[in-house]
Amino acid sequence: MATIECIDLVKVYISGAIRVTALRGLNLKVAPGEFRVIVGPSGSGKTTLLNLIGGIDRPTSGRIVVDGEIITEYDDKKLEEYRRKKVGFVFQFFNLIPTLTALENVELPMILVGVPREIRRKRAMELLSRVGLADRAHHYPHQLSGGEQQRVAIAAALANDPPLILADEPTGELDTVTGQKIIELFKELNKELNKTLIVVTHDINIAMYADRISRIEDGRIIETFTPAELKTHLAVVSREERIRELRKRKSKLEEELKRLEDEFKKGHITADEFVNRYMTVKEKLKEVEEELKALTI
């Protein structure tokens, strides 16, 4: 179990002349053994927050305190040790090494900390059984379905028995049913193994499994509530208001697409850069359009 406290977190990305502020003085407190879900639209700073808590990135300013220790003051070596012992990560995709079997992927974190072969093999098998994949232990990632791959990733994240599990859009690449199963597995682990769990998602249905839900927007936690409060909240926020907001956002994104095309035509950006940015904006646009569609039907 781990207690997490983020105080006035600011994160600014600088890429050449471009400055992107991902977090703007974010504050967050997660209790030990809590299952916290962070929701928010694309580009709101969810992943950045998770990376900072997980020690794979450093904030521009602010502090993160984990179990009373200020991890933002750690040097690289201590941060490595923190990641190794205290954190288990599950990403949206690319969670597994393609050349290793499911069992070997789960074993890998234990190899890195020098767990003897017999012990790690036994534990890896236990973890795979726990996620229901004992019979798939010797399969390679490409031989597993998306849901199975995520379950192996969860097992790998649990390998060194970290008190904190961080999951970044773990169901993003999965269909609804499989996503549901994965989130149930998370809930189960949270309750049975007493792990502190922070899951980043923009899927409101998943959020319903959490102990508490924090809504992040423009790099700040706007509000935190329980799933029960969320239901009320959703009812309160008027449908029309949301539609207006989404339409505004949609036109902004469309303008962004046009601007990118112009820049590409003028040769200000390379084709590679154009494709990258174009796809990202397009993805955001798709999300907005889907939500709009759902609300307008």
């Binding site: 794979i56 070596k77 990641r83 990560f89 390998a159 060194n160």
Partner: peptide
């Protein structure tokens, strides 16, 4: 690159 990043996330030291 991503694979190396994953190894690091899984606890591998530099």
């Amino acid at each position: 690159r991503t694979e190396i990043g994953l190894l690091k996330v899984r606890g591998a030291t530099s």
